[in-house]
Structures are given as C-alpha cells and as structure tokens.
Design a protein around this nucleic acid. Structure first.
Lengths: 329, 329
DNA sequence: GTATTAATGGAAAACGATTTCCGTAAGAAC
DNA sequence: GTTCTTACGGAAATCGTTTTCCATTAATAC
C-alpha cells in the first residue's frame, strides 16, 4: 500500500508537508498544496487509519451498544433501523461504527469493558435499550473516557447527551386521540418493564391524562410481552372500554385477545412497527422514526467529540393508524 | 492508559519480553511468564489495537457488507439476524465487525472501495445480498487484498468461500411436501429477482421437481415483492391448484390474494420469517437459520485469514409450518 | 542595501506495539 | 575447571502517521 512517504518523494516535498496538506494546516502555499494533492490523487493514497490514530490519539471509531430485549422481529425491526441510521450517518461524518450487543459485555467488569473499548480506539458510544439495571452504562459514563449518547434515557452531563422522543407527551397524545374517537371512560393500560425509563414516562403520561380527563385507569404490567398483554386483556378488557398499550407488540397481543373474546375495544400501541399492518385490524399508534433518531444520535455524538457539551435532544413523534395498504411493497 | 512499557517496568523485564508473553512466544520461562501476567492483570493492561496492528500488519477487523433490498421488516429481520450472528461470533473470535451497507459504497469506484477498506485495516469481508449486478464485490475479490466469504452466492477461489443452504434442494423439499400434502397437479411458482443466484437455484429446483413428478408448472416473476405476488396470484391462482413462492413475503401476498378471492390453494414460502406467524393462515416454509449461517460465515472468514483455502460451505435447512402459538412470547 | 518579519518547508521525536538479532547466563559434557 | 550449547532476556529498528520545532527563503519596511 502507498504511504505518505511515497507521496512525499513523488511530490518532492517532506513527509511533514504532505501531512500538513492532508490535515488542512494553514501554513502551506497553494502551489505546494496542489502539487501534493495531485500526487495523492494520482497514487490513490489513503492515510493508514491505524498509524494516524496512534500518532494523533484521535480516532473516528464509535460503538453502537444495543440491548436486544427479545428475539422477536419487533425488536429486530427497531434495532435494525437504529443500526441503519447510525451506520449511514456515521459514514457521512467519516466515523465508523462497530456494533456491540450488551449480552457480549455483561459478564465483564466495568474496567474490562472500558479497557476493551479503549484498546479498540473507541472514543464515543451510543447506547440503546438500557434500563436502570445496566450499571455498566453508568460506569462507562463515569469513567469519563468516552463521549456518550444515550437513546431513551435522560442521562445528561458534560460529556453525555440523550436523544429520544417525548414519551410522556406521545403517550398522552395517542391515548387522548383513541379515547376521544371512541368516547371511552375506563382505560386499561398495559405498561412495559418496571425499571425502564420509557415505561415510567409513558405511565406518567397516561396517569396525567386520566386524572385530567377524569377517566378510570387500571394499570397492569405487560413487560413488553405480547403473551402477557394477551392474558391481561383477557382478564381486564370486559370491565374497561379501551386498551392502551405501551408497545405495538402488546397491542397486537391485546387485539388477538379481543378477537378471541369476540368483543370490541379500541386498542392503541406505541412504536409504529410494520408488523401492525399485518394483524388485520387497524390500530392507533405512535410512530417513532428510529432511523432519524439514530442519525441524530450519531450527529450529537460527533458534536460531543468536537467539544460541545452534553444536552437533551427531543425528537418529534407522529400519530398514525397503520394500514396494510400503506406498507405493502 | 497503561502501556506495555509500564508493564515491563513494573515487572522488571524488557518490553520485548512482555510482548513475547502476550503473544505466546515459546522462549520465555514459566517464571517470567507468570510474573508478567500477574502485572498485566494487576494493572489491567490491554494492548493498544492500533499500535499492535500498525506494527504487526495484522488486524482483527472484518466488515459485514449488507445489501438492503427493501425497507420492509422482512428484510430487517433477516439482516438483523445476520448482524447478530456475525457480531457475536466475531467477539468470541476476537475480531471486530464493522457493518457497511452497499448503498454507502455504490457510488465509489472499485479502487476507492478497496482503499477505504484497506485504510481501515480491514482484512476480511463478509458479503450478503449481492446479485450479479454488483461488480464491486467481484472487484473486491479480484483485488486479492481481502479474504472474503460470500453468503448465498457460489463464488469460491483460493481466498473466497461461500456459505449458504442448498437452495435448490430446499425449494424441492418444501414444494414436494406441500404438493404431496395437498395432491396438487398444477403449480404456480412465483420466482424472485432475475439476476439473483438464489432465485436461479430455487427456480431450477421447482423445474426439476415438476419435470420429475410430471406436474404442470407456471412461472412468474415476483421480484420478492408482496404486492407483485398478490397480483400474480389474483391472476393465475384459479387455473392452478398450488402456489409456491420463492419468499415468505411473497407467500403472504399470495395468501392475502387467496383470502380476497375466497378460494383455497395451499401456499408455501421460503425463509421462515416470524411475520409468517401473524397472517392468520398456516403455511409451509423453509427455515433458514440466518444467525447460524452468519456465525459460520465469520468462522469461515477466520479460517481463511489463518491461511486456509476457500471452499463451499453448505448449511442445513428445515421445513416448518409457522404457527402463531409457537412464536408468541 | 540592510534589517526585520512572515511564510514556508524539513528534520526528528513520538505514538505503542512487534520482531529480529544479539549478548549473557545457566546447564551439560568432558 | 573449562568449553560448548542452549535458553532466555534485552536493545533497537520498524510500522505510518502527526506534530513540534527549527532553518531557510521571501517579502516588507526603512
């Protein structure tokens, strides 16, 4: 492979001059700059990233740390969209992403994880799917060795940003819409995981809405499980007139139960996954644009790596009714 | 960060001795080895991957090059499983994977792509979803700079292996099962893309089966599109008594058409995606274990990087009937 | 024409490992 | 006790960059 040395020799300048041209240093004459760039193009020179980062202590390496909740294709769809958005935007920003699943690091100590990322030259980490149980993430943040962006958790400090939609507002919006459309009074709410941030936010939303609108609210924990949601619906749907779910998968479970019971109750979900189009009934849901969220996370990470301070980024959500006709390709 | 120098000083030996211990060189006494390893553990030393690869010209970096066919969640599910398998197995083999989508490199010249991978220290590439149109992959192979594993394409040479199920046999197996169960005589076959390897293999399979069993065969191209499959079924299902599809998504489209037309025809698909469980009707399909295939691809790449020659690896497939009850969690 | 300053390019150290080559000490043979 | 091997450990070069610091040249002012 052609090195900076070859370029220097061919262009008749010193190695340091080539480096200066490549890194846009100011004190290089236009003439020299052009001469060097011509040779670079001609020789097809691309700097060796290893050498560059060893020398400069900077790298463009970033990790996407994903917690795979369940091996259902709902989680696949969401994770894949996160990956897609991150990888694409990273390429544009000249970063490269390595994907890591939390399962791969959960039996390491915090020091080991930190060392692992550091030895790989990783300077920034995007985290998705963490819960308050994941002490690793906190240690990663506390270590101060990485710039971090946490998706769907409100962690913000000097070196850490958070990116997410406003889950509380989104839950209120979609529930209000569903309730108004159907003039409901008694709400069955199927919540997510105990220790999740999004679960807490959404739950707070529905509570606030029901208090404000003076609706009766029954809350049960569905743990983001379709089966659990189905069982809960079986048990509590009769005595309520609306089923609000904290995820699409649970909404699908609820809908299946209602079909089995042969009763009608409006159901709404959360996330906007394509699977919703295949269950035969239309349901309201909140669409999160996971690709955009992920793109924004990468951009924010880039900003942090350039020295900007951490902050909270709120992304927009939309209310939709997913129809099969809209998604078939 | 703690360097090899620190370890050497602390252990009271030379830098080179530490390196020899770390890289399992033979001529180090057991005593010295232990002394060094103790210090390594104590200091939490992890070698700097940049420096190591710069010096040794070896890296553990591998790329997973994925072609996203459609942005449907069928493709999401499959891609995600490939990524999951690759990333996990790679970690175990001490490799790290960067994910790249073909869309990101398709406007580069072959030389640019090669340079890009080389400058990143990538030594091996796993390719999934290529068609004969993708000249980039051929150039990557021809460049001789990378060890490669191609999933679902029969490219094999000294430095390139292929991994896939036996698509032809799988198509024969699933079609034969469906046809025998329903005693069919006239088969409507909805094929995939014109220029795909798997399409050709599966098509050859169904042709062979129909010739052997003296069945009437009608072939139409569905381009892996649910909508196209639906239209084709609308048009040709009446005059046939079985619909064999080259993908699950097309099978779903076919099934929807049959429901609309209110006629019964056995339908079978290909891939074994979870979505099949949600369409309400049971269908036969071939299950490909994408995670395993991907794991095997990484292992094969590892073998190639250790000097083994390219070969063809055939993975097993299974015939299944996906039921909602089996997949709900 | 000389002195001063600014602009530019080059030499060399540094980054953190690997690896070759060589010197020394320990062990075996006599 | 001396010589010859062998095993082991250390010094130093190397990988391909970045970056600091210094030397040279050109430009400007007087």
């Amino acid at each position: 492979m052609v090195s900076i040395k070859d370029v220097a020799k061919e262009a008749g300048v010193a190695i340091s001059t080539v480096s200066k041209v490549l890194n846009n240093y100011p004190n290089v004459s236009e003439k020299t700059r052009k001469k060097v760039m011509d040779v670079v193009d001609q020789l097809g020179f691309v700097p060796n990233a290893m050498a560059a980062s060893l020398s400069s202590k900077k790298t463009g390496r970033v990790a996407l740390l994903i917690r795979l909740n369940l091996s259902t294709q709902a989680s696949d769809e969401i994770s894949m969209q996160y990956i897609t958005g991150a990888v694409q935007r990273a390429k544009e920003l000249q970063l490269d992403v390595i994907t890591v699943f939390t399962s791969m690091i959960e039996d390491m100590t915090a020091a080991e994880v930190t060392n692992y990322f550091e030895s790989q030259g990783i300077k920034g980490i995007i985290v998705y799917g963490m819960t308050t149980r994941d002490k690793i993430v906190k240690k990663l943040i506390d270590s101060g060795n990485f710039k971090m962006v946490v998706i769907d958790a409100p962690m913000v400090n000097r070196t850490t940003s958070s990116v997410s939609i406003d889950h509380k507002k989104a839950q209120i919006d979609i529930a209000r819409k569903t309730i108004q459309e159907n003039k409901c009074k008694k709400i069955l709410y199927i919540a997510g995981e105990d220790d999740g941030y999004v679960t807490a936010e959404r739950l707070e939303g529905i509570r606030e809405l029901c208090a404000e609108e003076k609706l009766k609210l029954t809350v049960r924990k569905g743990h983001f499980s379709e089966l659990r949601a189905r069982e809960i619906t079986m048990r509590y749907a009769k005595s309520n007139d609306c089923v609000v779910c904290a995820s699409d998968l649970m909404a699908i479970g609820a809908m299946k139960a209602l079909i089995d019971m042969d009763i009608f109750r409006p159901v709404c979900g959360f996330d906007g996954i394509i699977l919703m189009g295949y269950v035969g009934k239309q349901m309201n849901t909140v669409r999160q644009d996971f690709v955009k969220i992920s793109e924004e996370a990468v951009e924010e990470l880039g900003r942090l790596m350039q020295g900007q301070e951490g902050r909270r980024v709120l992304m927009p959500h939309t209310l939709v009714r997913i129809r099969y006709e809209d998604i078939i390709i």
